[in-house]
Design a protein around this nucleic acid. Structure first.
Lengths: 131, 131
DNA sequence: GTGACGCCTTACGTGAACGTCAACTTGACG
DNA sequence: CGTCAAGTTGACGTTCACGTAAGGCGTCAC
């Protein structure tokens, strides 16, 4: 019950990324593993951040955008920083995400229409297709 | 009523992209402008495709993924090609889009929670924040 | 005819996000 | 003691999606 620290290898296995990726994220200040001599030890906090990083990437956010977003999740840690500014950034990002979701929903609908047309054509040609 | 062809400059103004971008998309076979001598003339079809390209980009799809998707919208044009295969590709892409939408929806919810927490903290410090 | 545009091709440059390779420690094991 | 796996730091290479000159052609206004 003290598996709180992970080596780079464990992290790679857990999240399916390469060591290079984790070192790269550290260099870009997205992760902050502590050191045991020269070796990196990733904390629970790093794991939480990495999860969010990978999620953000799937939404098309750049690492720099993700880095800004991540700061919001450290609010408990921030004491005297520019919290209000971070809040504003997050608000903008949230709006962008909602807009993206709406667009995506619309695009899904359009694509579904196209696929209905495609199904009709294929069936008219005698080709069996899945629903 | 024959504004069906556009020059590269008109396209750039209409879609807020650079000439380089349109030439690049042509080189990657995403667009197929006809030629008037050496000059490109973009058709209604190219405009429709470009709109989809730009939309796809906002969803984080690569140009290669978008190129595959675009084929589906040309189904009327395809006569003897591998339509069934294209249909399958589109089906996978559609599933990916739905998964992405679901993830995005979840992420929006989580971020909203975080921002609620942030609001509480800011207000406790006497900082006024928007809803 | 001579600019000034607008367009063309060719080709090298760039930033993001890593991949890859070399050379070196360091701890565990037989 | 050797060596082997797992880690380290550079440093250069790669892919994607264009940016950015450099130089040439056609045509329209003056």
């Amino acid at each position: 019950m003290s598996e709180t620290f992970s080596t780079i290898g464990q992290m790679c296995a857990e999240f399916d990324v390469t060591p290079r990726t984790l070192r790269f994220y550290e260099s870009k200040e997205l992760l902050f593993p502590v050191r045991d001599g020269s070796r990196r030890l990733f904390t629970r906090r790093d794991r939480a951040r990495l999860k969010l990083i990978l999620q953000g990437k799937r939404f098309g956010f750049s690492l720099e955008e993700i880095r800004q977003l991540l700061d919001l999740y450290d609010i408990g840690d921030q004491q005297r920083t520019q919290l209000a500014r971070t809040y504003e950034v997050a608000m903008e990002r949230l709006d962008a995400m909602k807009a993206q979701r709406d667009e995506l929903t619309a695009a899904i609908g359009e694509l579904e229409d196209q696929m209905q047309t495609a199904r009709d054509i294929l069936r008219a040609r005698g080709v069996a297709v899945a629903a």
